[in-house]
Structures are given as structure tokens and as C-alpha cells.
Amino acid sequence: MVEVKNLSKSFGDHVVLNNISFNVDEGENFVVFGRSGTGKSVLLKCMVGLLEPDNGDILINNKSVVHIPIKEMNELRKRTGFLFQGSALYDSMTVRENLEFPLTRNFNFSAKEREAKVKDVLEKVGLSKAIDKKPAELSGGMKKRVGLARTIITEPELILYDEPTTGLDPITSKEISQLIVELQKDLNITAIVVTHDLICAKIVADTSIVLRAGKICYEGEIKGLEKADDPFLKNFFSSELVDAEAGEI
């Protein structure tokens, strides 16, 4: 479904992603770990054309998405969901309008169908009561969940989640993780999930990679991560700090 080939991206002389390659199969939940600032968000943004990679290629459904005309990119974007790390809700619109916005413009649903969809996704994220609120009236975690609702309302084939559970309490966090799994099961959605949250990762992940200093330093199942001997991975995934040096990016 998604193939990343030799991807590199720098900002000035700051190399963020250095020759990264991996594959995500259809219907798979693929988790990306990495310390803050290692380029996880940059990686996701390259996939939807918000950033242009310097080198390498990204294939979605066997078609390159790098340097393609905006029309083709938009066709792809309609079938892709993107959850922003900071939610990115439209603050001039109510929750309802936020959710309807992609529906009215890209799809031909009747007003009734739209209403039903809005109610349905809000129920899924547990925010039915917030339907007429403006984003400014919501807490950080609520915003995140509305952002999630806006991402899944169009039922995309591929969803890129940038830290879907950061800032949520453990219970909501587990509920959201389970929702991601449900979406995968029910609609066969492929997902790339960027997260620091081990609990979330354990619930959703089929496979995972760990980014470090622009490279992939681990690829495989989560179980393997917890048993790894590498001091960096130990620091990342166990509760004690093994060797501070090894934690450097």
C-alpha cells in the first residue's frame, strides 16, 4: 500500500530524514516511534505532499506521490486521512461545520446523510455533546478527538495519525487506540501511527519502526522492542534510564 524508498529530507544543513526505506502493507497498522524532533511529522507530511522530499520516492498504491500535479495529489488526498499533531481544527467553525467541511466539498452527500455521519463519528470519539461548540471552547484532548473525527469521517483508505493519543487520559487513550483497531478491522483501513504512547502502540501496532538520527534503528514487532539489548531502545521502552549517552538523538 505504502512504499517509502530512500527518502531524504533536510532543512538547510539540518538533515532530518536520511535515506529511509520501509513498506506498509494494506490493512496494516504501522507504528512509527522516535524521540521528539527526529522527523516523524516531517515523514507524514512528505506522504501527503505538504513537504517535498529532497530525494527518494513514496509510492501509495504503486503510484509515486512525489512531484505529481496538484490534481492527482488531490484525488489521492480525498482517499487519505491526516490527523495533525496539533489537531488543526478550523477555529472560525463549530465542531459540526469542521466535520462537514470536507464532506460538502469533496463528496455528494445529502444534508441528512451528512448529519448522520457527523453524529456517528462524534459518538465514536465520545463527543456528541460538543457538536455546536467552537474549538476555542474545547479542551486539548477534546480537540484531538474532534480532529480524529474529522479525519475518519470521509472513510479514507489510508490514515496518517500524528500522535493520536498524546494529551489524552489513559482511559480515553485506550478507547481511541481501540477505535483505530476497529477502523482497521471494519473498513480495512491502512494506518501509519506516529506515537510515543506505548500503551497505544501495543493495542494498535502490527509492525513498527523506530527512527533515530534520521535513520531507522529498529523494524519489527513491538514485542521485540521491549526485549532489545540496544541501550537506546532500552531507554526508550523501559522505565529506567540505562545510559544517558545512548539516549542522544
Binding site: K45, N74, A88, P102
Partner: peptide
Amino acid sequence: GSMRVTEQIDAMEVSAI
């Protein structure tokens, strides 16, 4: 400006709008 820095403009772009 605030829509730009809070990624709301990017969000529209990603929604193919």
C-alpha cells in the same frame, strides 16, 4: 497568519480543498 501557523491551511490542503 494564525491559520497558517496552527496548520489549519495545511489541513485544508490535505482535505483536497
